[in-house]
Computed example of a mutant assay.
Amino acid sequence: MKLLKTTIFLLLISCSFLQAKTDTIEVFSKAMNKSLKATVVKPAGIDGLEKQLPSVYVLHGAWGNHLDWHKNVKKADLLQSLADLYQIILVTPGVAPFSYYYDSPLMDSVQYETYISKELIPFVDANFPTIKDKNSRAITGLSMGGHGAMMIAAKHPELFTAAGSMSGVMNIDVRTWVGNEDTQEQRRKSQQEMLGDIEYDYPFSPYTAVGLVNQMKQNGIALIIDCGVDDFLIETNRQLHQLLLENETPHEYTERPGAHTWDYWTDALPYHMLFINQVFEKKKIRSLD
C-alpha cells in the first residue's frame, strides 16, 4: 500500500509538471460572437524566464478539435518533444468541423480566417512569451488544416515566414478527390452553404489553395507540402505543386508512402518542424547581419 501511494504521488507530480508546460486557453471571437479553445505547448523550463520564443500554429483536420494533435498522434508527447527540441511554442487551435478555416461570405458563424489572424494570434502574443514578429512565426496543418495553413498564410504574409501542409485539401473541388463519393457530396453541400456559388475551374476561387498561387509567389513565404501516395487527396497536392512550378514559386514538395492517417501525420510533423526551424534560423542570422 505504501508503494502504491508513493507511485500515485509521483504520477501526480509528473502530471502537474506536464500541465505546467501545456495550457488550454479559451479565446472569445468578436467576429463570430463565440469562444473557442486552443492548446499552447511551451518548452520545459521556460516558465519564470525572461525569454521570448518563436511560435508555430498547427491546425487540425475535419471533425477535429484543439486536442487532436495531442490525443491522436502515434508517438507519446510528440508536440512537447518538438517544443523542447526546437525551443518553440506550439499552438493547436480548434475550429468547426468543415469550416476549412474560411471567412464565409454567407455565415457569421464561420469567420475562422479572421479568428486565427486577428484574434487568436494577438491573444497568444499578449499572454505567452512569443517573439512578436513574422520572421519567428509559422503555420502548418493536416488535411483541412493544411488548406487553412496555406490559405491563411497566402492572405496574411505580414504574419508568417513559413507555411506547410500535410495531406492538405489543396483544391476544395471534390471532383479532384479520389474515391469516397458520399464524403465528397457532403463536402460539396457544406461548401455551398458557406461559400455560395464559387469558381471551381481555372483560375480558381480564392477560397481554395490552388487559387492563391500568385499570392504565394509574391509573398515569398517558405512553403513545405507533402502527401502520402495512397492519400485520396494526392491529386490536389500534385496540382498545387505543378502550379507552383509553373509560376516559379520556391517550395519543398514531397510524396511519401502512406495514406490519410495519423501514422502518416505523426511522421510528417517532425519534418515540418525541422523545415520551419531552419527558416527561423536563417531569418535570425540575416537580422544580425
Rank of each mutant, 00 (worst) to 15 (best):
I89T: 00
L85D: 05
Y207C: 09
K2N: 09
N127G: 02
T261N: 08
A62N: 04
F128H: 00
E199A: 15
G48I: 03
F160H: 04
F98T: 15
N247K: 03
E119K: 04
V56G: 00
G141P: 10
T236Y: 07
V178N: 08
I198G: 10
I131P: 00
S29Y: 04
A76R: 11
N247C: 09
L243D: 00
L82P: 01
D231A: 14
M194R: 11
D226P: 15
L85I: 03
M107V: 09
L159N: 05
A149C: 11
Y115I: 11
K51Q: 03
N65P: 06
V279P: 04
L59M: 15
D68E: 11
N65G: 15
N237S: 13
T249D: 01
A209F: 00
E119M: 12
L49K: 14
I221K: 07
Y100T: 04
Y253A: 07
A163I: 14
N65T: 13
S165T: 13
P105L: 09
N127R: 05
K284S: 05
A38M: 04
E248Q: 12
A153E: 06
Y207R: 10
E255F: 14
N72L: 13
K75F: 06
I224H: 03
G48L: 05
V27G: 05
A31S: 06
D133M: 01
F280D: 01
E119T: 11
F28A: 09
H60E: 07
A38F: 08
V110H: 09
T7F: 09
D197V: 14
R286A: 12
Y264E: 12
A62Y: 12
R175S: 12
V27C: 13
E158I: 02
G141W: 09
P93R: 01
K51Y: 00
M194H: 13
L59S: 05
L274N: 07
I221W: 05
G61N: 10
V124P: 01
T161A: 06
L85A: 08
G168V: 06
N171M: 07
A268D: 14
S99C: 15
D201T: 14
D230Y: 12
K71N: 15
G196C: 13
Y112W: 14
A31Y: 10
P250G: 14
V169W: 04
D108I: 04
S14F: 08
K21E: 11
W63I: 07
D84G: 06
Q184V: 10
D201S: 15
Y207D: 14
T130V: 02
K37R: 08
G146N: 09
H156D: 08
S205Q: 15
L36R: 08
A96N: 15
I172A: 13
N219L: 02
